[in-house]
Lab assay of single mutants.
Amino acid sequence: SISSRVKSKRIQLGLNQAELAQKVGTTQQSIEQLENGKTKRPRFLPELASALGVSVDWLLN
């Protein structure tokens, strides 16, 4: 799922939720909701993929 991929990649990069949120241009709460499965397809998906160094396709599939 996107939530597990985001969380595992974030941890692999040594980032906390607030640091990832800053790179993406969103809030820590938005990252938390995404990782908890409350958000399925965030509006900041391209920025998120870029910050994590992955493709949008990788996040979604």
Rank of each mutant, 00 (worst) to 15 (best):
S1M: 10
I2V: 09
S3M: 08
S3Y: 06
S4T: 12
S4C: 13
S4A: 14
S4L: 12
R5A: 09
R5W: 07
R5P: 03
R5Q: 06
V6G: 02
K7E: 08
K7P: 02
K7S: 08
S8H: 13
K9D: 01
K9H: 05
R10I: 05
R10N: 01
R10W: 02
I11L: 14
I11H: 09
I11A: 08
I11K: 10
Q12Y: 09
Q12V: 07
L13F: 05
G14I: 02
G14C: 07
G14R: 08
L15W: 14
L15D: 02
L15S: 04
N16C: 07
N16P: 04
N16L: 07
N16I: 06
Q17F: 07
A18D: 11
A18Q: 12
A18S: 11
A18F: 13
A18L: 13
L20R: 00
A21T: 01
Q22G: 09
Q22W: 10
Q22P: 01
Q22S: 11
K23Y: 08
K23Q: 10
K23W: 08
V24K: 01
V24H: 03
V24G: 02
V24C: 13
G25Y: 04
G25I: 02
T26F: 04
T26Q: 09
T26A: 08
T26N: 03
T27H: 07
Q28A: 13
Q28Y: 09
Q29S: 11
S30E: 15
S30C: 14
S30D: 15
I31L: 08
E32V: 12
E32R: 12
E32H: 10
E32K: 12
E32D: 11
E32F: 08
Q33N: 15
Q33A: 15
Q33P: 00
Q33S: 15
L34R: 08
L34K: 03
L34E: 01
L34P: 03
E35K: 02
E35V: 02
E35Q: 02
E35S: 01
N36G: 10
N36T: 12
G37R: 05
G37N: 07
T39K: 09
T39Y: 12
K40N: 12
K40C: 11
K40V: 13
K40E: 14
K40D: 12
R41V: 14
R41S: 12
P42G: 04
P42M: 08
P42D: 03
P42L: 10
R43E: 14
R43G: 14
R43N: 15
R43H: 15
F44Y: 14
F44T: 02
L45A: 06
L45V: 08
L45G: 03
L45S: 03
P46C: 10
P46Y: 12
P46M: 12
E47V: 08
E47Q: 14
E47I: 08
E47P: 04
E47N: 09
L48F: 03
A49W: 01
A49L: 03
A49E: 00
A49I: 04
A49N: 00
A49V: 04
A49Y: 00
S50N: 14
A51L: 09
A51R: 03
L52E: 01
G53L: 07
G53R: 09
G53V: 15
G53H: 09
G53I: 04
S55H: 08
S55I: 03
S55M: 05
S55V: 05
S55F: 04
S55K: 07
S55N: 07
V56W: 06
D57N: 11
D57K: 11
D57P: 08
D57Y: 12
D57V: 09
W58E: 05
W58K: 02
W58N: 03
W58V: 03
L59M: 04
L59W: 01
L59S: 00
L60A: 08
N61C: 11
N61Y: 13
N61R: 10
